[in-house]
């Protein structure tokens, strides 16, 4: 379980997240909406532990451990992973090696995983070097598949992905988050749903991802404040109809 209590964050001396409270239970995936610059990526980076995002108040608890001030790699080993929107290129490090790093000591078939996101032809290329938007997404998902974290942060997984690949990306995320459950001989769907443990937080602008991943809850971040927490479809419809301006009123009503 992820529990964020009254979190306050500064970036370069400016407060960018204010009094954030958020709870994601095992098996749950939340979608995070909000206009550009509202602090969505900052929230993800803060959860991942990027040191430039300075926590000035509140705490982050994951699996019962207070990780508010833990280094990035400790959070990764506790089971937090992230799919980045614009990851850096690391020259001389092949995508294959990166996938092996993600797998750590687990035995994985790099080729097998790569086939699932149609990425076999990129394994010998330097990670992220000259990758298109869609290729970056598939590379990030490939890394997460090898890493197999319990809680996954996705920063706009569908942006820059063409219509042909959107289903591939969507279904891969669903599988990572155990949202692809099909009933089997041994287990009913309900049983599988109950056994779900993976958690997710997905930043989305378009909501396309909702067509592939059964998201449990939607959150709206507006101006550094979580202003709304309800059914993701309802949020999407509201934004479509009246825009994020409505969030201002909702925030005031929330107080």
């Amino acid at each position: 379980m992820l529990l964020i209590e009254d979190l306050q964050v500064e970036l370069a001396g400016k407060t960018i997240l204010k009094h954030i409270d958020l709870e994601i239970k095992p098996g749950e995936t939340h979608a995070l909406f909000g206009p550009n610059g509202s602090g969505k990526t900052s929230l993800l980076m803060t959860i991942m532990g990027y040191p430039q995002y300075k926590v000035t108040g509140g705490k982050i608890i994951f699996k019962g451990v207070d990780i508010t001030h833990s280094p990035i790699n400790e959070r990764a080993s506790l089971g937090i992973g992230m799919s980045y929107q614009r990851p850096p290129t690391i020259h001389g490090l092949k995508t294959r090696q990166m996938v092996e790093i993600c797998a750590a000591k687990r035995e994985v078939s790099v080729e097998g995983l790569a086939r699932r996101v149609n990425f076999q032809d990129f394994l010998e290329r330097d990670v992220n070097a000259g990758f298109s938007g869609g290729e970056i997404k598939r590379s990030e998902l490939l890394q997460l598949m090898a890493q197999n974290p319990d809680f996954m942060l996705f920063d706009e997984p569908e942006s820059g992905v063409d219509m042909e690949n959107i289903a591939l990306v969507g279904n891969t995320i669903a599988k990572l988050l155990q949202k692809d459950c099909e009933s089997t001989d041994q287990k009913s769907r309900l049983q599988m749903k109950r056994e779900r443990t993976k958690m997710g937080l997905i930043i989305t602008h378009t909501g396309y991802i909702l067509d592939y991943v059964a998201v449990d809850k939607g959150q709206v971040l507006y101006n550094g404040v979580l202003s709304c927490s309800t059914n993701p479809r309802e949020i999407l419809r509201c934004i479509g109809e009246v825009g994020y301006e409505e969030c201002v009123r909702c925030t005031i009503d929330n107080l």
Partner: peptide, 22 residues
């Protein structure tokens, strides 16, 4: 940071980048 979020310690991440550079 990117490599640390994939599970490497800061030293491991640094040496991985240096190895790549070379």
């Amino acid at each position: 940071n990117y490599l640390m979020s994939r599970g490497l310690s800061e030293d491991e991440a640094t040496s991985t980048i240096v190895r790549g550079f070379l």
